[in-house]
Amino acid sequence: MNQQQKSKLGGRRAFMKNGTLILSAAAAAPATLLAADKPADKPAGVRVALVTDLHYADKPPGGSRHYRKTLGKLDEAAKQFEQEQPQMLVELGDLIDAADSVETESRYLQTINRPFSAICKDRHYVLGNHCVDTLKKEEFLGAVEQPKSYYSFDRGGFHFIVLDSCFRSDGQPYQRKNFKWTDANIPAAELEWLAADLKSNDKPTIVFAHQRLDVSNHHGVKNNAAVRQIFEDSGKVLAVFQGHSHRNELKEIGGIHYCTLVAMVEGGEQATNAYTLLDVQPDSTLKITGFRNQNSYLWEPQA
């Protein structure tokens, strides 16, 4: 990273901490008390609940994926989030698993979205490849009452971007089993929108995605180098949170944190659950508290 990039990004650096240690600290001083530690006249930042790859389906397990168990795991996460009081809830894609018919896939979505939507009024859905395996995008979005598949919004002095990589290389959207899951792309129109959105925004920015923007393997968006270049040119993106590959992974590219979160669907026991609380603090410190199998991190701006 050159000096200009360091200047743009405020010299941010990452501090990784073991998930257990963070959680032990949280147990001693609950995250709900963090805002109380701040003077009353200062902003409290933004608290975001994050989940990914729930893959809910009413069908037997497939390998390590226990589709029906997701309901119980989500219930556990909901109880934790109720204590922590996040301002918003984001799921990073693959809320449901694939089905052979529109009727069945719609039923999966209705079943899982009922408890999911009860967690928080301010919620956001990132489209995953399984979300639109049989359903069209407009069908999925209509069912969850979200107008667009990619968009941006502001909360608490920060800018947030939701991306949609469920497009084929020829620009056609995923739907009705018309795609290969390894052919994920952000089309030209969305790239143009992204660049313009970041240019018009003057706030530190966090991005939510499903397919990965930091790898060139089959879990990665094919044109993710172009996406990263837009991020880096803006000098505003703090971090990208993504799912899709079902495991903990963290990369820093061009001064930006790319954090891959663990799938909730993996494993048949509650102990294999995974969900996350993100605290975006006023000075752009990002505290990621992972529960169960999710790692925790602390990223602080350099003094």
Rank of each mutant, 00 (worst) to 15 (best):
F179M: 02
G142W: 05
G156C: 04
A184K: 12
Q172E: 14
F153R: 12
A189C: 02
G157Q: 06
F160D: 00
D170W: 01
E190M: 01
L163F: 13
S169I: 00
A184L: 14
T182P: 00
N178F: 04
E145A: 14
I161G: 01
E190P: 04
S149A: 08
I161P: 00
L194F: 07
Q175P: 03
K148N: 15
S165I: 04
Q175K: 15
K177H: 14
D164T: 06
D183M: 11
P173E: 11
I186E: 13
S169M: 06
F179D: 05
N185E: 09
H159F: 02
Q146S: 09
A189H: 08
I186D: 09
P147D: 14
N185I: 00
W181A: 13
V162E: 08
A143P: 02
Q172N: 13
N178E: 12
F153V: 10
Q146A: 06
L191F: 01
R168M: 13
K177W: 08
S152Y: 03
E145K: 12
F153E: 01
F160Q: 05
L163Q: 10
K177D: 12
F158D: 02
S169Q: 14
H159I: 09
F140W: 11
S152G: 06
G157C: 10
W181T: 13
D183E: 13
G142N: 14
Q175L: 09
F153P: 08
S149T: 01
A143H: 11
N178C: 04
A188E: 14
S169R: 13
L141M: 01
W181E: 15
D164F: 01
F179G: 05
Y150D: 13
Q175T: 01
A195L: 01
I186N: 12
Q146F: 04
S165P: 06
P173S: 14
K180A: 11
G157Y: 00
H159C: 06
K177V: 07
F140Q: 08
P173Q: 13
L141W: 09
A195E: 07
A143V: 04
G156W: 00
S169P: 00
A189K: 08
S149N: 05
R155G: 00
D170N: 05
R155N: 12
F158Y: 05
C166W: 02
E190V: 10
R155L: 14
R176A: 15
F160V: 05
F158M: 10
Q146W: 08
I186P: 10
N178M: 07
F160M: 02
L141A: 08
V162S: 04
Y174W: 07
Q146G: 01
L141I: 08
G142A: 07
V162L: 02
A143W: 00
Y174G: 10
L163P: 12
Y151V: 04
F160E: 03
L163K: 08
G142L: 06
Q172C: 03
S152P: 01
P173F: 05
G156Q: 03
C166Y: 02
D154E: 15
E190D: 15
Y174A: 06
W193I: 11
N178I: 10
